[in-house]
Design a protein around this nucleic acid. Structure first.
Lengths: 357, 357
DNA sequence: ATCTATTTATGAAATATTTCAAGATCTACT
DNA sequence: AGTAGATCTTGAAATATTTCATAAATAGAT
């Protein structure tokens, strides 16, 4: 909110030269109410008048003013997509997985007749009211590896204010609102079980499970379960913290090597971490996948391009986007929805050594 | 526009339970006009009343209804970002360069107080009026490798209807509107000159210059100029068409090999094409960069991950985004702007063989 | 104390729709 | 021809702001 001078207040352009529905009405020799109905194809106006009005509107280059329409209907046919990013020193690159979600969400939304209003957000500001309440959007999608637990209060206030929103993320007991997420535990299990099935006995885990991100904790749980099922020991030294950045994956792998504990398998909690780790291993003369099999998580676009190409757990971003948008629209229409866990899928490439392709 | 039944017309929810500025006025014991001014920090209301009104508004969870405000002011503080994609059979993946532009544009816009409305578009539908005219956005950014030439009429109508828009793309003589783009000719020149400086004598060009995309034609012109300057022959067989897809780059390289004309350098008009081409060369036993040096264009995120990592011409997406948004906002404010060509930068990696890194 | 100028606040108009309540017009049936 | 019922159309109200024109209150100067 910047301070406006008195002069500024006069300077605003207010009169527009676009035609209004009243102009169309005059041109068509009909009331303005009829124009409104005709343009929305209401059965309350006869077919031929409807056609005539449409034609005139097109000729005069008329388009419905969405502000006026929205004011009356309390609808905007718009979805707000709020993207929460981990705080990063390097603020330039958006997490590629979310970027591709963004693309797919926009597409799914378009198919259902919604536009998408994109906004990067901090968890700390007033996002929880800005959008729907100010009638800019009919509903909100929250996207991010968020520590939603500590923001429960905010989510509750969203719920209380009757805001329609849906979260990408884990399903959390006693959590307000609905969410769509992938089954991170199953993903972690699949990744680790795959490593075990390749005969790997000492499987390391790279990723941050102590603070934040419930999805990472679930992936770790899947890892633990898979170890147990395969009768493998869980070696404490082989779990090393790393935040979701390539550089930090690199450093994490170095610490893993420094620990002195040998390992022949590595499950990284995200692809970025995995890619950094592989680079570290290669720099230290460790061959991937011969000496160490590596599996990541996310299937970001680069995963298939790095070398060796990365075996990873894929979250189907297209399906997820469709579910997110579809369910949000249901919420907007007051239809019942239920939170959903989507099954992730293991994509086998070279970094695990299962395939020679 | 779907047909609505009579019943549907009644079913809409119209009454909202959010507080209005009038509620705030009542609570504060002042007129509603004063509330409006106070919340926008107008000097026309005394500081302490202003503070009081702000406080009450916060307590009552009041937010300005943007539709009502926009209706009156003809402003939306929103920028529409229209993304034009090449027609593709595989409609799933968005061009990664544009995706990163999208991220950066959103950020730049946020810095200037604008939200971004994202929309995928065909060149053929009514995009040219939908957004600003319907008061959903104050201005429009057009993003895409578009054949804007053949859409000159549409752009002219945009200009005529006083729509504020700015194009990402080449500066074209006699073209309505303003644009920001990178200097494709210089980029093509740099790429080719670099190959020549490495001693490559027979440099091929992979990319579509016969139809569409003026940026590709400029890159080709840069290529031609660089050959001339280095006293190298331009061999017609070494120019092969390929649209901007990895698969088509792969096929293009195969055709290049089939031509029988030997070549030791390759300039691909985009990174995706280059990556596909490298894969084809490798599949056929041609070593990159030993036998053939390859340079791409765009510096998409994967460029540094493929192996060998791709030497390419970088368009600075961050600076470009900032210029696009900044100039659009100038247009919105009726300030003068001028089209700009941004200098691209050669990023040397492994695929050209200049560096052993 | 009065007048003038400035500061602060207000009522009402304007903005472009959607939709309610009601009025025409038309059709069909007695 | 008259009338009930259906079909089509309309005037006016409602939506939540911003801003114009104006009024009230305050301060300053004579």
């Amino acid at each position: 909110m910047d301070m406006l001078s008195d002069a500024d207040f006069r300077a605003r352009k207010v009169k527009s030269d676009n035609p209004t529905s009243r102009d169309i009405a005059n041109a068509a020799g009909v009331s303005q109410a009829t124009v409104s109905r005709a343009l929305r194809n209401s059965p309350l106006v006869r077919q031929d008048t409807r056609d005539r009005i449409h034609k005139i509107a097109r000729e005069l280059n008329y388009f419905v003013n969405r502000n006026a329409a929205g004011l009356r209907t309390h609808q905007s046919d718009t979805i707000a997509l709020l993207l929460f990013e981990e705080t990063k020193r390097d603020h330039s690159r958006v997490n590629p997985f979310f970027l591709s979600m963004l693309g797919n969400i926009t597409r799914s939304a378009a198919n259902l007749g919604y536009d998408v209003l994109v906004s990067f957000q901090d968890m700390d500001n007033d996002w929880h009211v800005q959008y729907q309440v100010s009638n800019r959007a009919d509903g909100i999608i929250l996207l991010g590896y968020g520590d939603y637990v500590s923001y429960r209060e905010k989510l509750r206030s969203l719920s209380a204010s009757n805001t329609r929103f849906i979260i990408w993320g884990p399903i959390i007991q006693d959590h307000p609102g609905h969410s769509i997420g992938c089954d991170n535990e199953s993903g972690g299990f699949q990744a680790t079980a795959h490593l075990a099935s390749l005969g790997r006995k000492r499987i390391a885990f790279l990723g941050n499970v102590t603070k934040g991100s419930p999805e990472f904790i679930k992936r770790y749980r899947g890892y633990s379960n898979a170890l147990k099922k395969a009768n493998l020991a869980k070696i404490p030294e082989l779990r090393v913290d790393a935040d979701n950045e390539e550089q930090l994956g690199y450093q994490g792998a170095l610490r893993l090597l420094d620990s002195g504990e040998p390992f022949d398998g590595l499950f990284a909690v995200t692809d970025l971490i995995a890619i950094g780790a592989i680079r570290a291993l290669q720099d230290k003369g460790v061959n991937v996948p011969r000496d160490v099999s590596v599996v990541g998580f996310d299937d970001i676009p680069v995963a298939s391009y790095v070398s060796p190409s990365l075996t990873t757990v894929q979250q189907n971003s297209e399906d997820a986007s469709e579910l997110l948008v579809g369910n949000l629209v249901k919420l907007i229409r007051n239809e019942p929805v239920k939170s959903t866990l989507m099954p992730p899928k293991l994509i086998v490439r070279q970094s695990c050594g299962a395939s020679s392709f």
